[in-house]
Amino acid sequence: MLLKENRRIILASKSPRRSQLLKEAGLPFEVKTLEVEESYPDSMPVEEVPVYLAKKKARASKVFLESDNDIILAADSVVILNGSIFEKPQNEEEAHAMLAELSGQEHQVITGVCLLTNKEEIAFGDLTKVKFAPLSKEDIHYYVSNYQPFDKAGSYAIQEWIGLCKVEKIEGTYANVMGLPVERVWKALQNLLS
């Protein structure tokens, strides 16, 4: 076991996918969240936004640290195409529009991660390139209607139908596209705990 009994990971995220990935990696954790406004400076380069937001979430969640043995884990994922961030869609129309733009294109998924203790902060970003096959209007309608991707950056989840049937290529880790670069989190935790 990576964690000693007295160490505690607090996942500052409501994402069921991040919880699933941590469980599958055998890491014990608790979920504790606060509402944190996901805003960032307009002038910030898009590649820096996910790490900035992960730090913002982790620092806001510092109130959950009860001892020096506790570790906050916060993350934020963004989908980037042609220098623009595709956030979570507000409605079906936005989801359709985003997927139509991603159709046949290669885009980037960057997940920012912040690990925070009373004494230390480790933050990093991980990038994966994803190439979609062309998506017809019928493909997009089917996916949005059946999978309701309104809580997902870029209007899609890699582990659902669209990822299985319409992703041609991935460069980088699959887990990162799901929302957490687990291999890098594992390494960072080992460094933090050594």
Rank of each mutant, 00 (worst) to 15 (best):
15 S>C: 00
16 P>C: 10
121 E>M: 02
183 E>W: 13
22 L>C: 04
164 L>R: 15
136 S>Q: 12
145 S>A: 06
60 A>C: 03
67 S>H: 01
67 S>F: 09
92 E>H: 10
66 E>H: 07
155 S>D: 01
141 H>G: 00
47 E>H: 11
92 E>V: 06
5 E>D: 13
25 A>F: 02
194 S>R: 14
72 I>R: 10
57 K>D: 11
7 R>T: 05
97 A>R: 14
106 E>I: 08
99 L>Y: 04
175 A>R: 00
93 E>N: 12
94 E>S: 07
21 L>T: 02
107 H>Q: 09
28 P>S: 12
165 C>V: 04
186 W>Q: 08
153 A>I: 03
69 N>D: 11
113 V>M: 09
26 G>K: 13
46 V>K: 15
107 H>D: 09
171 E>A: 13
30 E>Q: 03
104 G>C: 07
43 S>R: 07
116 L>E: 06
61 S>Q: 14
126 D>L: 07
194 S>N: 10
27 L>I: 15
93 E>K: 14
32 K>Y: 06
23 K>Q: 08
7 R>Q: 10
27 L>G: 05
21 L>N: 00
87 E>M: 04
149 P>G: 03
107 H>V: 03
163 G>H: 12
160 E>V: 08
83 G>Y: 13
60 A>D: 02
129 K>H: 15
142 Y>V: 00
190 Q>F: 01
89 P>L: 12
114 C>I: 02
47 E>F: 09
81 L>A: 03
1 M>G: 14
41 P>C: 08
169 K>L: 10
30 E>M: 00
34 L>H: 00
121 E>T: 09
47 E>C: 05
47 E>R: 07
170 I>F: 06
16 P>N: 07
70 D>Y: 08
138 E>C: 00
124 F>D: 07
89 P>R: 14
41 P>F: 04
82 N>F: 03
131 K>D: 01
74 A>Y: 08
161 W>H: 10
19 S>M: 10
